[in-house]
């Protein structure tokens, strides 16, 4: 069973601790993780860091990770800051 997590509209430092805990629990279950990103309308550096953290963690644990349907807000943010690592992960998600 894949773990599907849908992120809510606002992903900022306010939600960051809760999001990180949720993802950490998901990582413990050792299933593939699917992150649904279409709802996100607001994102900041704190949330972006967690996504990068998730990407690296899942790679370490050899868990498949899919970042699905990144919203324009996320795409804009990622290209604004030149977050290549995340851009690549999103690009894969787009193709899949």
């Amino acid at each position: 069973m894949d773990t599907v997590i849908t992120l809510t509209a606002e992903q900022t430092i306010q939600q960051a601790p809760a999001l990180q805990q949720q993802l950490a629990r998901a990582l413990l279950q050792e299933h593939a993780i699917i992150l649904e990103l279409s709802q996100v309308t607001e994102i900041d550096c704190a949330a972006v860091q967690i996504l990068i953290w998730l990407i690296r963690k899942s790679q370490q644990q050899n868990l498949p990770l899919a970042l699905r349907h990144p919203s324009p807000a996320i795409r804009d943010f990622v290209s604004l800051l030149g977050l290549t690592e995340l851009q690549l992960a999103l690009g894969q998600a787009h193709e899949s």
Partner: peptide, 15 residues
């Protein structure tokens, strides 16, 4: 370009 230097261990602080 950004680089994100996360701690290698479990000490990731989301804030």
């Amino acid at each position: 370009a950004s680089c994100c230097t996360l701690p290698a261990d479990e000490g990731f602080d989301p804030e």
